[in-house]
Design a protein around this nucleic acid. Structure first.
Length: 538
DNA sequence: ACCATATACATTTTT
DNA sequence: TGTATATGGT
């Protein structure tokens, strides 16, 4: 390759990004805060490896979500063309699937969460609730999060036998089986270590013990491994993700180089300052500061509303102010919309984020009454779930009627690894409603974080299990989704399980300096009462 | 087998 | 407050 193509690969990158792209030997930890061009850096790194003569089939790029994997793959293809298909870019589970198929050379089906539950139900005759608990237990055992006890051992065995009888694996097996094989078989272990000469792991802070073990097996003793992530965005501890793997990476892989991507290309300075003022209270983190590149921006608006319905109305009012041609808002604020130069907002520029799914209902009521298009993502038993089933059924039918290629058929089976969040359609012109968890990895010009009250953020609904640092990270993730305008809302009263609770603003709000905030109060409705009084006079 | 009533319970969920 | 499971009566 010529020098000019190397230039092209590094084109438009900042110094740290360039460094992260070109440090290809040994172990490397890239600390990539929100909006720092993480995916860009990963994709350019892949291109750089290829340009340096590494064959794409020796490159392993793993992520956690299909969404992230898809983006990585698409962008790698755009950069490298057809040869990009030779590298592995996909989720941990797809990687495991490929390894199992590669070694066993057999077809098998993957049981979804629902199929798993049905199977367990048939084995135990237990209630749906109990079945869920058992499924969770088995999952935790398979992910090395806990050991099996006498009680679970029996059902575990029966379940595994039933799976095997149906020529099936569950999601966790896709990681567990390769670990088992590679731990036992040195020859195969060597084979994969030789194959994956360069490993890139995205979102390393979210890695769980099983994934870590698999990775260690593939990496071998002298790995070229690049872990990319951000300790401040670790929000899956409850699923077994172990942040310590990230924090200890340098000791874990001796000789590690560490690069921090600091320049933030997403958010305004005020938003970054505010987010920093919240997250700096955490102890389990690598200290870092995000450098804004987009100017100071507007203050964060704190809106106090009387109840959760008013939360929706306040949001809808703000959206309506910004949608619909030459608005009063435009005259007052100038062109601060998307891109900055041209005034325009689409519904898809707005995100409404909450801690618990239960909060969606009240918000949805407001939205459906307003006529504003919206999509709620990530929720189970929704139209989206049905859509998945329909899509899967359609894909399966393709396999049997139509003669499609082996590659496609693999993709089809792999589509079992889809989940509702993957159906999030960024192209749809609709306001997106979702939990803080679902918001990770996304960005929006205007963000509303609702329910910023003690009890909800940080969420203490299950008192004994509150991880305040993780809650803080969640809030941090929420805030840093914002490009331009952030609204945080809290309700002075909230109905929770039928009880009306008086609410006080989240401590996370008081961590933000007041100079970064502006306050709006939506008063209690006194109108109706006045009307009643007037009627009473007559 | 069935319906009615009582009771327990409630976060987040990458695949 | 709503949902899902457990209980109880016919």
């Amino acid at each position: 390759m010529t020098a000019s193509s190397a230039d092209k690969i590094l084109d438009g990158l900042n110094e740290c990004q360039k460094h992260a792209v070109t440090t290809i030997n040994g172990s490397l930890l890239v600390v990539a805060g929100p909006g720092t061009g993480k995916t860009l850096t990963i994709v350019r790194r892949i291109a750089y490896l290829v340009q340096q003569g590494v064959s794409p089939e020796h490159i392993l790029a793993v992520t956690f979500t299909n969404r992230a994997a898809r983006e990585m793959k698409e962008r790698a293809e755009a950069l490298l063309g057809g040869i990009a298909s030779m590298l592995f870019a996909g989720t941990f589970h797809l990687l495991g699937l490929r390894i199992i198929k590669d070694i066993y050379g057999k077809e098998f089906s993957i049981f979804s969460r629902d199929e798993q539950a049905v199977l367990l139900k048939s084995l135990t005759q237990a209630s749906a609730r109990k079945v869920q608990q058992v499924a969770e237990k088995i999952s935790r055992i398979k992910n090395f999060l806990e050991d099996s006890n006498k009680e679970t051992q029996a059902i575990y065995k029966a379940y595994q036998a039933a799976l095997s009888q149906r020529n099936a694996y569950d999601f966790d097996d896709l990681i567990r089986i390769p670990i088992e094989i590679l731990e036992k078989n040195e020859e195969l272990r060597k084979k994969y270590q030789d194959k994956f000469k360069h490993i890139i792991v995205d979102e390393y802070q979210d890695i769980n013990p099983a994934q870590y073990r698999l990775l260690k097996l593939l990496a071998g003793n002298t790995p070229n491994i690049c872990a990319v992530g951000d300790a401040d965005q670790a929000i899956y501890a409850f699923r077994g993700a172990d942040l310590r793997n990230f924090l200890n990476f340098e000791q874990d892989f001796p000789g590690t180089a560490m690069i921090t991507l600091s320049e933030n290309y997403r958010s305004t300075g005020i938003i970054l300052d505010a987010a920093e003022s919240v997250i700096k209270n955490n102890r389990s983190r690598i200290d870092k500061k995000l450098i804004p590149t987009r100017g100071k921006g507007a203050r964060i608006t704190v809106i106090s509303v009387p109840d959760e319905r008013a939360e929706g109305s306040a949001i809808i009012r703000e959206i309506e102010l910004r949608i619909g041609g030459t608005s009063r808002y435009q005259m007052e604020h100038g062109n601060v919309g998307r891109g900055g130069s041209e005034w325009s907002f689409r519904f898809s520029d707005f995100a409404v984020i909450f801690r618990t799914n239960a909060q969606a209902t009240a918000l949805e009521e407001g939205f459906s009454a307003s006529g504003i298009p919206y999509q709620v993502i990530g929720r189970k038993n929704s139209a989206q779930a049905r859509e998945i089933e329909e899509t899967l059924a359609y894909l399966r039918s393709l396999v049997h009627d139509v003669g499609i290629s082996e590659q496609e058929s693999v993709e089809t089976q792999d589509s079992k690894l889809l989940d509702p969040a993957d159906l999030f359609n960024p192209g749809a012109d609709a306001v997106t409603l979702m939990t803080l968890h679902m918001a990770k990895g996304l960005e929006f010009p205007v963000v509303f974080i609702t329910g910023c009250e003690e009890g909800l953020i940080p969420c203490t609904l299950m008192k004994d299990r509150t991880d305040i640092e993780e809650e803080r990270r969640l809030y941090y993730v929420g805030m840093t989704r914002t490009k331009n305008e952030l609204f945080v809302l809290y309700s002075r009263r909230r109905s929770l399980y039928g009880h009306r609770l008086p609410s006080i603003p989240s401590t996370f709000l008081s961590d933000i300096p007041e100079t970064l905030l502006q306050f709006t109060v939506v008063p209690d409705k006194v109108k109706k009462q006045k009307e009643r009084e007037q009627l009473g006079l007559f």
